[in-house]
């Protein structure tokens, strides 16, 4: 049931995704602030399918040259492509941050035992500015293979970016900056180079008192 209703291709399903800040309170406790978060969900056949977005509407927001989104989509499989619109929660107090930990955690599952590679490209005006590549091995749990990228440290570029964004006095200014800030995550089977998931992330600042929010779309080409 999750195919078409969550971030899942026929080979890999994203279970959870979060980018967070941990702030120590005292030696034994810390506060965890979620900038963005996709919580675990268990869609059923009665849930609606994700809305679709024509991938051509966002091509220019991501790398367009060799190995870019267009080429990736042409290679397929088409059911592996998603767009996530995040409303990021920037309400955290970022002062005195020498002991703060900025991290990203994500989890995936598959019916296949494989080694996955996750490439995360931060883009400004559609051009890659920094890339992180991570390799994860499967763990067999409860009848399926689980992949965990646990507490991966946020890069210096992203930490600086969040700080600069926070210093802008108005939300519309932050959203104006975020209009040209995107992230492209491509998860591949390390050995076959098959695309397992391709997720395009775009952002606004949350105005909600309930923290980070998101919408997920299927990327299609009609």
């Amino acid at each position: 049931p999750w195919q078409g209703r969550s971030i899942a291709s026929s080979k890999l399903r994203m279970l959870e995704f979060s980018a967070f800040l941990e702030q120590p309170q005292d030696p034994e406790t810390f506060n965890k602030h979620l900038f963005v978060h996709i919580a675990q969900s268990n869609p059923t056949f009665s849930d609606p399918y994700l809305e679709a977005v024509d991938i051509r509407q966002i091509y220019d927001k991501f790398p367009e040259k060799k190995g870019g989104m267009k080429e990736l989509f042409e290679k397929g499989p088409p059911n592996a492509f998603f767009l996530v619109k995040f409303w990021a929660d920037l309400s955290a107090n970022l002062q005195d941050d020498s002991s703060f930990f900025y991290g990203v955690s994500s989890q995936y599952e598959s019916s296949e035992n494989m080694i996955i590679t996750s490439s995360t490209k931060v883009c400004s005006f559609g051009k890659q500015v920094v890339e992180k590549v991570e390799t994860e091995y499967a763990r067999f749990e409860n009848g399926r293979y689980v992949f965990r990228i646990h507490r991966s440290p946020l890069c210096e570029y992203m930490i600086n970016f969040i700080h600069k964004l926070k210093h802008l006095p108005e939300k519309y200014m932050m959203n104006s900056v975020l209009e040209n800030f995107t992230i492209l995550q491509v998860v591949t089977n390390r050995d076959t180079l098959e695309t397992l998931l391709c997720i395009a992330y775009v952002f606004e600042v949350s105005t909600s008192e309930h923290g980070a929010q998101h919408h997920i779309y299927r990327l299609v080409k009609d």
């Binding site: 977005v53 509407q57 559609g126 779309y217």
Partner: peptide, 24 residues
């Protein structure tokens, strides 16, 4: 930077793209 990018607001995107969910 690109000079002639079409603003996101002018692109063909679902209405929900501009509606922040209000979930607790």
């Amino acid at each position: 930077s690109k000079q002639e990018q079409v603003p996101m607001r002018k692109r063909q995107l679902p209405a929900s793209f501009w509606e922040e969910p209000r979930l607790a």
